[in-house]
Write a protein that binds this DNA or RNA. Structure first.
Lengths: 143, 143
DNA sequence: TCTCGATCCTCCAGTCTCTGGAGAATTTAG
DNA sequence: CTAAATTCTCCAGAGACTGGAGGATCGAGA
């Protein structure tokens, strides 16, 4: 049984791998809600904050911009709304995610081929550039 | 039959979707080699530059840091070396790529569920946060 | 209870990755 | 041969952090 604890910002940082100044920065730009303070003005966090922050961290690592994360979080915060105006938004994000998966799979196959080639002591030429450069893997119409 | 052309920086920008100042910036930090200049000091590019730049753009969009891209490009530039010291590097990148694919697939499934729920006019709760927050999808041991 | 090392606070300056404007030179379309 | 479009360099600004200075607070041990 976890839960029920109130975390300091340092403990939250340790639990999520996000640095303390970064946590404060996320609060300042509204990605994280303003944390409740103790009598001596220190921020306190609960398990919900841990999940939210981990989500933000992973999404950032995956290359999503803060604005996209903000939208994703807003959908998660309000599960009733997506069925109305946020539906298109969700579909757009879905297409973007699928595009990224396709490109990453192409890159993975190519890097894997490089590694395999090494295992067999073969010398192969490397096509990582061509793979990711290939426009076919890209959903955007703006280039 | 394409090829054989020498591109201006503006044409390269149009072809790749990378803005002109960004192209110059990439050159300044060494991601792109110094472009040959015309008599009047203007940069010229060939098809190889197009591919390299598209690769950089896609890799950045996928969230890879400049340093990782630099390493990937170095491997591509020198296909003989990966079999020696760069093998571990390639495997590390491979693991990172696979981790990203896994996390993106989890996110995709969840967003897809949201969209599907909308299609059926159902109200579902959204678990995108829990999905990406899940440590199981994360390869890093440093958090 | 007192103390001192760890942690927190705010404020602010710096880094990295772009992005865009100013002013001047060059190219190119009409 | 103009006039508009492009390019050049330099430099400033934006977005997303990151870290240090100076000061307050906490918490474990003497």
């Amino acid at each position: 049984m976890p839960t029920m604890s109130s975390l300091t910002i340092g403990a939250l940082a340790k639990r999520t791998g996000v640095k303390i100044p970064t946590i404060r920065y996320y609060e300042s730009i509204g990605l994280l809600p303003e944390a409740p303070r103790t009598g001596s003005n220190r921020r306190t966090y609960d398990d919900k904050a841990v999940n939210r922050l981990r989500f933000i961290r992973h999404a950032r690592e995956l290359g999503f911009e803060v604005e996209a994360i903000r939208q994703l979080l807003a959908m998660a915060d309000d599960p009733g709304r997506p069925c109305r105006d946020a539906d298109l938004l969700a579909r757009t994000h879905l297409a973007e995610i699928e595009s990224r998966i396709a490109r990453l799979e192409a890159l993975r196959d190519e890097v894997r081929r490089m590694v395999d080639g090494c295992a067999q002591d073969q010398v192969r030429s490397c096509h990582v550039i061509e793979v990711l450069a290939d426009h076919a893997h890209c959903l955007h119409d703006r280039h």
